[in-house]
Design a protein around this nucleic acid. Structure first.
Lengths: 200, 200
DNA sequence: TCCATGATAGGAACACGTTCCAGTTCGTCC
DNA sequence: GGACGAACTGGAACGTGTTCCTATCATGGA
């Protein structure tokens, strides 16, 4: 469906179309960075991206799709930046914590953006499955690499553990975004969970 | 603020006011059960509760507050129903799984209602803190009781474990509500996590 | 009993996500 | 170059959450 309803990065499209898509995502990130979820208004995005409202909806069928796609792009960027640097830490849990804290710190440095993206993620329904799955895979990849640097096949337990940690991380993020936890508390909560699960 | 801006259950209010509040929550649950989040339209709730729109907003300052309050009431009901029955299972993890599966089954038997309430929970911001905290406490109580039936003081680890399990449960629920996981998958995921964390 | 005051009814008005449409532009095939 | 269809523009229109205003109603004090 994404192939017919929206223009994603891989779909060829003309150069002009790829450029429009980029402008739209740039505008989304910019507005989200400044004012969060509420500031990402479809008319404002369209204006700033220099695109008609109808065109915006042709590229992204809803505000949620738009934000989740933007999240995917940002996440991919930061993952790519870390991909080739070795993760510090002597034990698996140290490395996992380092990865999560690094990512979390990145998110917390632009609270509005994080709020917008987390909200979108949480509000998404089945029609955003594809975009969300992509983000989930990126996170698994990062965590798996932290648990077994330079290794190939994670065990079933590894996969399950990765998933649990991802869940805790998401819950902590939601807690932070919705003002129920401070940044410090989210960090402590994640660290605690990783130690309990990886036991060391 | 909840004491000044909205009329919660403890705030006395006249009998007529308590009755209005009840009618509003009843209407909310009814509409949510039938059509989920989108079906809980403020005008429809007001109509069905036989209350003016402005009055509805006087009792609940937003749709999110309304739904989270409704969630709280329902959760409290089911918790109260279980409070005095012994939890089956020989080990802590068996009992925890039983509790979670029972609760999850209850939720999955009214998917629309669960969708509405989970959405609201995920979308809530800091102004709904009080209502959400109440729900969180109820869940902790249930899980703690499952881990240590008839006992008093949970250890720090117990509290942390409870929290992790709650996080996983929430994430699974979100996955289910948003159509990314089937009911069976959520059950398996939770079971897996509990075994890994309580290790047995 | 009558009045003052706050709560409620009823409904208009506004904001923003979403849809839709008429006209224009762009890309492609002859 | 011309014709055709797809994509884009600009903007109107609609639905629903939220706000606001006025008239009516209920209640407690004089």
């Amino acid at each position: 469906m994404s192939a017919t309803n929206s223009l994603n990065a891989e779909d060829l499209g003309s150069a002009a179309q790829r450029d429009r898509r980029k402008r739209i995502l740039d505008a989304t990130i910019d507005l989200a960075s400044k004012g969060g979820f509420d500031a990402v208004q479809m008319r404002a995005v369209a204006d700033q991206a220099d695109v008609a409202l109808g065109t915006l909806y042709r590229y992204f069928p809803s505000k949620i799709h738009l934000l989740v796609s933007a999240l995917g792009r940002e996440f991919e960027r930061t993952e790519a930046a870390r991909r080739d640097v070795e993760i510090p830490g002597d034990t698996a849990s140290e490395r996992v914590i380092n990865v999560l804290k690094g990512t979390t710190r990145g998110l917390q440095s632009s609270p509005h953006l994080t709020e917008a993206l987390t909200r979108a993620f949480m509000f998404a329904d089945a029609s955003v499955q594809a975009e969300i799955h992509q983000v989930g895979m990126l996170l698994s990849t990062m965590l798996t690499r932290a648990m077994h640097p330079g290794q190939s096949e994670p065990t079933d337990d590894d996969v399950a553990i990765t998933r649990i940690i991802g869940d805790v991380w998401l819950a902590a993020l939601v807690g932070w975004v919705t003002g129920r936890m401070t940044a410090a508390e989210t960090g402590a909560q994640i660290e605690r969970a990783v130690h309990l699960i990886l036991r060391d």
